[in-house]
Simulated assay, not measured.
Amino acid sequence: MPVISATPDLDNLTLTITAEFAAPVDRVWQVYADPRQLEQIWGPPTYPATFVDFDFAPGGQARYYMTSPEGEKFGGWWKFTAIDATTSFSFTDGFADGDLNPVDGMPVSTNVYEFSPTETGTRAVYTSTYASAEDLQKVLEMGVVEGASMAINQIDALLAA
């Protein structure tokens, strides 16, 4: 399993997930830079993602929805703030309504995804920072650790394909 740790820190308002992959950094990077590959791993296995917009550049945005086994759609949005090709990217992440517009009152996180080479492949560190302990607690109760871990753990199969 790629996920080796998931650490919520209510004092620092962060959730940090660390994973390791048996593939080079540039290959892992492509999973996140290509929306068609990202669709294959974003969200838990039974909630496949569909990216409607994906402008992977600073100031660009992505909008997507995940579809439940019952056909219910859950939307989200990203606003990219920085991209350092193959090394890291940063974005703001939030919940979206049925028209993929941001939902007021739901937690928004600031995220940094960092990728570094290891002797056997790539280490990825995913750090999400929330505005308040209440926002972090809310997403923890919604199952963000389990959902994100299941999503990240799908990457190995995509890399092997």
Rank of each mutant, 00 (worst) to 15 (best):
D99P: 01
T127Y: 10
T7C: 10
V125K: 09
Q30F: 01
P117S: 14
G105Q: 07
D9T: 09
S116M: 11
D26C: 06
Y47N: 10
Y32I: 02
R27C: 00
L10S: 14
T122Q: 03
G43C: 10
E146N: 12
L158P: 02
G98V: 04
T7W: 05
V25T: 05
T87Y: 04
Q61V: 11
A151C: 06
P45T: 15
Q30W: 00
S149H: 11
N153P: 02
L158A: 02
Q137R: 11
Q61C: 07
S116A: 15
E39P: 00
F95T: 03
E134Q: 11
M1W: 14
P45N: 15
Y126R: 11
T81R: 04
I41D: 01
G121H: 06
Q154G: 05
P35V: 11
D26S: 09
V125A: 05
G43M: 14
I41G: 01
V52T: 10
E146H: 11
P35H: 15
L136G: 05
P45F: 15
D55K: 09
M142T: 00
T129F: 12
N153T: 06
L13S: 08
S68K: 15
G71L: 15
Q37Y: 06
A96C: 03
D53F: 09
M1D: 14
Y32V: 04
A151P: 04
F115L: 12
Q154M: 10
R123L: 09
M142R: 00
A6P: 07
E70P: 14
P48Y: 13
Y65M: 01
T86L: 00
T87F: 03
D55V: 10
P35C: 12
A62C: 08
L13I: 05
D84M: 04
P35Y: 14
W42Y: 15
D55H: 07
T18N: 09
I4W: 07
D53L: 10
G71T: 13
S5E: 08
Y64H: 11
T118I: 04
M1V: 13
F21S: 03
Q137K: 13
T92Q: 08
A22D: 15
P44D: 10
T127C: 08
